[in-house]
Nucleic acid binder design. Structure first.
Length: 500
RNA sequence: GGGCCCAUAGUCUAGAGGUUAGGACUCCGCUCUUUCAAGGCGGCAGCGCGGGUUCGAUUCCCGCUGGGCCUACCA
């Protein structure tokens, strides 16, 4: 039997959790869960200037929200703790020493400025801007001279000069790479921190990672990683490089393309199951025609053999569509938990509504959910449920509210509805249709002006059902007020709100 | 510049040496309904180009083109 699968998501905490990283995390997690393996979270905070605590929190929060739980990680520990690289410096020291002793690593005294300068010159000459390996064979005297200048050395790994390194990729097959193309790279910065290339290799090995699943932007990095592993005598993990996520202009997805933090999608009312579903479909497919899947359904079907090589464009429209589908499938409780804070934020609801109010909001959601694509639209499309301060859209004004007969129709509706003893859907529908009949007009001629008056718009859920959810007196009051506004010509100008 | 990766409609994708190239989003039309922003039905639209291999390639190979990524004391 094969060794148990162990994968990791290893983000650097230098900002919010990007959807591209969420995508990588998801694929690792799905792979682990499908195969009953272990999913490890490791924080790669070796960029000592850009790493922040807030970013670590954002990563935890983002992953938890998406539903990705980890079996080992900084917060919960595990057999290979710590899982934060800045706390593993002693481990790395030990490993530099091995390389230094075996001659595969050496001290380099070149300053970043000097290196940059030389790269510029090489570029200007049309040469590859790689390091010239000049510190490889420093004499003791030269080293002493640099030290005397007060220079602090970095440690470089001695790459192979000849031959080729073959990357064996589960998704792409074998990819040979010419060794002579890459210069020796820094593995320990002057600051004492490791570079990514070094810590990733050491930790993946020490943490028994069996599969490294990451973005294709890491393909060429794999070459030094492989050489490092070989120098240490580590058995390399299996690699799988995923196609990148791109913006509509087909460049790597970035903030230029709009929202790239996972959190932004949460704020606009995307459900976590939507993001998992949508992200899973970017670069992976089920093989059958089903696309709307639960997380469990994805775990069940997921495997690397159905992952495609090509990069994929993040299509926001499709993401919204999938969200609409999941909104219909979601529990009312979940939708309420998302909607209530949004409504409160918009000033349409108290931050902690009473139990009765919550039930009522739930009824509003149930009425609207079939046509919503994000929960966020509730504060817009559903505004009239929560406040009298809603606008009258141009279509509503033009089609109904400016019509000379509308004022009388609305008054008649107000009167008929006011007289109702029971405020039920059936009673409301009966009254509205009755008014139409008495006035000798079709049902629509009563229904549409009524909707326009009470909601300010021409579209929405069943009129009778939405009226029922509004307080009896509110509906009657709005009808009377709008009738007045019609007579006063208030709808000739754009955008009045009720009573203006 | 160099290296590497990728290539089925605008987008996400399925697919096989011979298929009417399948599904989904978007868009358009029709339809149901009190309205659509929902539902139903239908439609537009695709194998990047050029060579091979083959009886036959969109599928396999090569080249080209296009796009992407990497080329840091960032990860």
């Amino acid at each position: 039997m094969a060794d148990p699968i162990r994968v990791r998501f290893a983000p650097s905490p230098t900002g919010s959790l990007h959807v591209g990283h969420a995508h990588t995390a998801l694929f690792n997690w799905l792979f682990a869960r499908h195969h009953g393996g272990t999913f490890i979270l490791r924080i790669e905070d070796t960029d000592e200037v850009r790493s922040t605590e807030e970013s670590v929190s954002a990563i935890y929060e983002g992953l938890r929200w998406l539903g990705l739980d980890w079996d080992e990680g900084p917060d919960i520990g595990g057999p290979h703790a710590p899982y934060i690289q800045s706390e593993r410096l002693d481990v790395y020291e030990e490993h530099y020493r091995k390389l230094l002793e075996s001659g595969r690593a050496y001290y380099c005294y070149c300053s970043p400025e000097e290196l940059e300068e030389r790269r510029e010159i090489m570029r200007a000459r049309g040469l590859p801007p790689r390091y010239d390996n000049r510190c490889r064979s420093l004499s003791d005297a030269q080293r002493a001279a640099f030290e005397a200048e007060g220079r602090k050395p970095a440690v470089r790994f001695r790459m192979k000069d000849h031959g080729s390194t073959v990357i064996r990729d589960l998704i792409r097959g074998d990819m040979p790479y010419d060794n002579s193309l890459i210069g020796d790279l820094i593995i320990r910065k002057t600051s004492g921190f490791p570079t990514y290339h070094f810590s990733v290799v050491v930790d993946d090995h020490l943490m028994d990672v069996t599969h490294v699943i990451r973005g294709e932007d890491h393909i060429s990095n794999t070459v030094p990683h492989l050489q490092l592993m070989e120098a240490f005598g580590f058995e390399p993990p299996r690699h799988a490089h995923l196609g990148l996520l791109m913006g509509p202009d087909r460049t790597k997805l970035s903030s230029r393309h709009g929202a790239t933090d996972l959190a932004a999608y949460r704020r606009m009312g995307m459900l976590p199951q939507t993001m998992a579903n949508f992200l899973a479909l970017l670069g992976w497919s089920t093989g059958d025609d089903e696309e709307i899947l639960s997380i469990g359904g994805i775990v069940e079907r997921f495997d690397l053999d159905r992952v495609s090589k090509a990069p994929s464009v993040f299509d926001f429209g499709k993401c919204e569509f999938i969200n609409g589908q999941h909104i219909r499938l979601a529990s009312l409780e979940q939708l309420l938990d998302i909607a209530v804070p949004m409504l409160a934020e918009a000033g349409l609801l108290e931050a902690t509504p009473s139990a009765d109010d919550r039930v009522w909001v739930g009824r509003v959601i149930d009425l609207m959910r079939d046509r919503m694509r994000t929960v966020g639209v509730l504060t817009d499309w559903g505004r009239y449920f929560f406040t009298d301060e809603y606008e009258f859209e141009e279509r509503a004004r033009e089609k109904w509210l400016r019509k000379p007969e509308t004022a009388d129709t609305l008054d008649a509706l107000a009167e008929a509805l006011e007289a109702l003893p029971d405020w039920t859907v059936e009673a409301i529908e009966g009254a509205v249709r009755n008014v139409a009949e008495q006035r000798g007009i079709g049902g629509g001629k009563a229904i549409h002006p009524c909707r326009a008056a009470v909601t300010g718009t021409t579209v929405g859920p069943s009129l009778f059902h939405l009226l029922e959810l509004l307080p009896h007196a509110t509906v009657v009051g709005r009808l009377r007020l709008v009738a007045e506004m019609c007579r006063a010509g208030a709808f000739d100008e754009p955008g009045p709100t009720l009573g203006e």
